[in-house]
Design a protein around this nucleic acid. Sequence first.
DNA 1: CGTCTATTTGAATGTACTCAAAAGCGGTGG
DNA 2: CCACCGCTTTTGAGTACATTCAAATAGACG
Lengths: 193, 193
Amino acid sequence: MDKPQLDLILNNVSKHITLTPAEKDIFTGMLQTKQLKRKQHWVAYGDVCRHSAFVTSGCLRGYTVDQNGIEHVLSFAPVDWWMADMYSLLSHQPGQLNIEALEDTEMLLLSKANQEELYQTVPKFERFFRILAEKSLVAYQQRLIDNLSLPASERYARFCKRYPTLIHQLPQKQIASYIGVTPEFFSKMRKSL
Amino acid sequence: MDKPQLDLILNNVSKHITLTPAEKDIFTGMLQTKQLKRKQHWVAYGDVCRHSAFVTSGCLRGYTVDQNGIEHVLSFAPVDWWMADMYSLLSHQPGQLNIEALEDTEMLLLSKANQEELYQTVPKFERFFRILAEKSLVAYQQRLIDNLSLPASERYARFCKRYPTLIHQLPQKQIASYIGVTPEFFSKMRKSL
DNA sequence: CGTCTATTTGAATGTACTCAAAAGCGGTGG
DNA sequence: CCACCGCTTTTGAGTACATTCAAATAGACG
């Protein structure tokens, strides 16, 4: 496995917990790499999600499809982000999330089974994933509040402030879907700014 | 402190981790009770939230107020639920959440400092609060998807299915605010069902 | 009983959507 | 290297879901 990838994930982990060399080995030994081509799916509607993914290059997008066939982006995962269908991963039930690569993407996979084992052998990881879940929780709460209380133009403004690098990287229709408007309306909205 | 309250919270904790009698004592020794009268606030906009609350009777509501003075309900916490301004609690920054009692309410408070100490002395609690955060995360993801993909009537239907007991307990305007519509529209919507 | 708040009802308005079509852009193959 | 194809973005007209404002009615609490 490539060294720079492991450095990236170890650095990510070290933001919240400190590992000994031995613990690093245990952790990295549990990881496997996976490559996706642009537009290739990692998880599809109805799948049981059995891994967490950590993106080392490229970008993922998680989305659902509603009754009218319209896609709704739940989250993006650029480099240095974690991604999974959390509902499915936790419940072992088929999920409704689709996860695809927006560009050629490389990621490290940690299986649910290995993650559980990790909690036993290196309990610090309970802490790590607790903190990860808590931060993610706060972000989703904030996004929900934004969707309830702000007009689309303001939600777009906040998206630009929060994810300045993603804006140039993503097709407009994906951003539109993330903030919760149609591509047509998004286009008109942008012009009027 | 009342025994039934402690039984309730210990039972809540035992859904995810198993404590020894000594660990139970450490935990319960960290808790303090707090009573709120109906409409009384526990947390207000701009406060730094320094405790997590566990509701033992009554019901809490967490909400924000937007630029137009309109309230938006982020969450309800009936008996056996945890509540906090997670953003503020985690960041130690002033939060935007208001938390008030919808009826006379009793809760157990766990201070942030005690919670951190608990992680050291009884590491199992890392696991407990990780699981709590993960479940909460999934719920907010689902709610966000609902808000992006479903019309108000369908969101109301799902709310009824998910929180059947709360429906009769809450004033309509609170439910309207939770699902993201005005009380006026909510009233009209209900009539047409 | 009276006051305050919640709910209902109605009319006018607005934000965002649908449908349709044109224009732009990027990649691929001849 | 250009032509074509598919996909994204733009533009426009008509529509719908939900809001605002106002006023009447109903409920709840002291």
